[in-house]
Design a binder for these strands. Structure first.
Lengths: 274, 274
DNA sequence: CGAGGAATTGAAAGACTTCAATGACGGTGG
DNA sequence: CCACCGTCATTGAAGTCTTTCAATTCCTCG
């Protein structure tokens, strides 16, 4: 794990939301961090911990898990480049458990660094604010996901989201990526029982929408998945939606440009595309 | 509706989160606002509108409603003193429909005022940030509500929340308040069908936990409701939990102080109490 | 190689939805 | 002032989705 790797992941993520200047990137390059690795399903922080650092996720997936209520509901998940606990800069006590969903590598950065960065660069401050807004928007989307979709489209929606978020930071080419969740994890995200999570995945496989074996997910019918989930990526607030190649039928020379096809699948407001 | 009323409501709300100084209150007193009224179920802003003002709710209830997906899922609701669209100061386009749930009176305050207030008073800035944090925490709580509770405790939890939030801004004495929602609204919040919402309410009535008639809710067994809902008010981030008198059995002189009884019902971390 | 969590399957029970119909209520226009 | 309309509240019955329980196999990690 290189020293500059932390900066790169974070910069990729922020750049997916807003263009950064050279100065901003230089500022980020001065980011002090200590890198650590964790096993799968390890608690990084527990409720009421008061970290003085922010966790910048570099590899793998983490989630906030509500251990008190219910059956350990997972209320959000993070992919590389995300910073799950930016808010502890303002309100230090952590309100849930930050738990890894896979083997994880993360950089820990003092709150002070972000405070100074925000003071020095208004653009960087804005970028960080946008990550919070996108996170809130994601919570709302998950809420409508749990509130008004059945388990099949619920799971489909989640997988669409993960796919786009990974692509936005340069991961998951081929629509294939290490699965962020075991079936019990998936159940805890979608508010269904583990048994039903299993049957739901089987149904997605049966419909030839994806492969999901040995901890890796491969979307085989992106358009179908988007349609089933009624997925619209706007809420992720990405400057440009990542291009999504599928592995299905090879393109004909007469087809419209792939980007436009996929844009149409991804969103109803194509004006936001590059 | 008095001119200074808007300021009062907002100050009450902010004071419920953090103590404000005299200077802060004076600053708030200079808040320019135009007051408007709306009928029930009126859209104040629709998706993609770009308001240049913040809505400070003075009377009644409003909600964000996701009109695109599903059956019009409601992702949050607001009580007097709340400011539903603070975030438009940063990202102007509204991402859902802001809809009244009852007859409403609201003050509209230019973004510029809040920007200046934040620049002038760090404490005020912090107070406003806390409202956002509490809002996010509420979204997470709703997520575990939808994800891991059955309809009965889901509805109970929502009513507990509303009760405490109203009390925190000085409303709902006697645990009695105008209902924020029709049964279809309740269904859209809790992710259940309107028919089932009706049956759920009947069950709450049957268990003598509350009265709910002619658009007003009266909680008759606060402790029972809290127990059923597994409700813990911490996530609302209130400095001091409001004292909750019930109308049930009159107190005996030998009872412990009411505040302590009720604190125990409200939270598992009584250290946060005044 | 053993242990423990993860994945899978079947069958029965339970929660919730849908459809359909009725009465109550509030607000509007004549 | 009243008739009318649409929404809200309520009820019953049937059907669907999801959970629960229990058992078996698979996989991975130590």
């Amino acid at each position: 794990m290189q020293a500059g790797f932390a900066l790169t992941k974070l910069a990729d993520r922020l750049t997916s939301l807003i263009e950064l200047s050279g100065d901003d990137l230089e500022l980020l390059a001065r980011m002090p961090s200590s890198i650590r690795s964790f096993a799968s399903h390890h608690d990084i922080w527990r409720k009421n911990d008061e970290p003085s650092v922010c966790c910048v996720l570099l590899q793998g997936y983490v989630c906030w898990k509500d251990t008190d209520a219910g059956a350990g509901q997972i209320t959000s998940i993070y992919v590389p480049g995300d910073v799950p606990n930016l808010y502890t800069m303002v309100s230090p006590a952590v309100t849930a458990t930050l738990c890894t969903l896979s083997p994880v590598v993360a950089a820990f950065v003092p709150h002070a660094f972000f405070r100074e960065a925000k003071a020095e660069s208004a653009r960087l401050a804005h970028a960080l604010t946008l990550t919070s807004l996108a996170e809130t928007a994601t919570l709302r989307t998950w809420l409508t996901n749990l509130g008004s979709r059945d388990s099949l489209s619920r799971v489909a929606h989640l997988i669409c989201e993960i796919t786009v978020r990974l692509r936005a930071v340069g991961l998951g080419r081929d629509l294939r990526f290490p699965s962020p969740f075991t079936q019990p994890d998936l159940a805890a995200i979608c508010g269904i029982s583990p048994v039903h999570a299993n049957r739901t995945i089987q149904e997605l496989r049966r419909r030839a929408l994806l492969h999901w074996h040995s901890r890796t997910i491969a979307v085989t019918d992106w358009a179908g998945l988007v349609r089933l989930a009624d997925f619209n990526a706007d809420y992720l607030m990405l400057r440009r939606l990542p291009v999504l190649e599928t592995h299905s039928a090879p393109r004909q020379a007469s087809d419209p440009p792939l980007e436009l096809q996929q844009a149409a699948m991804l969103t109803r407001s194509p004006t936001r595309l590059l």
